[in-house]
Amino acid sequence: MRLADLSKRSGISVTTIKYYLREGLLPPGRQLNATTAEYGEEHLRRLRLVRALIQVGKVPVATAREVLGHVDDESLGRTIRLGAALWALPQEPEPDEEDPAVVAARAEVDRLLHMLGWETARELAPLSPVHRSLVVAVAALRRLDFPWDAELMAPYAELMHQVARRDLDFMESHASEAEQVELAVASTVLFQPVLRALHRLAQEEESARRYGIE
């Protein structure tokens, strides 16, 4: 398809697509002549991902470029490729390692991972911003006298493991590894609000069943 067709199918203006091309967010099309290029379904798919990152996730262009660089890095194994792309998304700042709440939270998170047998998560912990985010969240709870420990977190972690299995089952329903990694990144940006909303709806439903609505 030509640029105008790509714009029409994606709902993104030609000007914006040209900007994404200049910024390296969208790979160039196949050059037909000096002034015309041809684009394929992979460009349409990438545009959806770019729009999810920038317009929905509010990810800065430079960060989006870094994320997409990991998505396209075929030299990485699938787990590292996916992890690197997701880790490049905006994350929590580094916690204060001298804060007693952070020290206690880190110990409980490590104990949780040991209890669950999540050895890969333990090995990647020093590098993982996701691990850091969990430590920061647990530390905040502990400062407010909600002493969440490994035993309290374990049932929630096991439920989220079931969600992760469904995520990967859905991801693997797509043909290419590039599509799978793109989908995982897009889902992280787009699907997190769905999970939060479902959690709150489930709380409302369970509360009504237990206590009524009057």
Rank of each mutant, 00 (worst) to 15 (best):
A4W: 05
E172F: 13
V109T: 01
P126H: 02
V61P: 06
D169H: 14
S128N: 04
L82I: 10
H199F: 01
E204L: 15
A202E: 09
P155Q: 11
T120Y: 14
S133C: 07
K18V: 06
S173L: 08
T188V: 00
A104D: 15
A4F: 09
T36Y: 10
H114I: 13
L134C: 06
K8M: 12
A139L: 06
R196M: 11
A121F: 06
R166E: 14
S128R: 05
T120H: 11
E74N: 10
A101I: 06
S207H: 13
P100N: 08
E172D: 14
P147S: 08
A101V: 04
R210Y: 05
G77D: 13
R9F: 05
S133L: 06
P90R: 06
D167S: 06
R65A: 15
K8W: 06
R46P: 00
S173D: 09
K8S: 15
G77V: 11
E123Y: 00
T36L: 13
V109D: 07
L198Y: 07
L82A: 14
Q31S: 14
R166L: 15
R65F: 03
F170D: 09
K18A: 03
A154N: 08
V194I: 15
R143D: 08
H174W: 10
A104Y: 11
A140V: 04
L25A: 11
G77Q: 02
T35V: 14
L141W: 10
L76P: 09
V103Q: 15
A150P: 07
G117A: 10
R132V: 01
E38D: 12
V102S: 02
E179W: 08
Q162D: 13
G24E: 00
G117Y: 08
A184Q: 03
A184H: 04
Q31C: 02
P129K: 05
M171W: 00
A62K: 14
P100G: 07
I54W: 06
E177R: 13
S128T: 03
F170K: 10
A202V: 12
P126E: 03
R22M: 07
T36W: 07
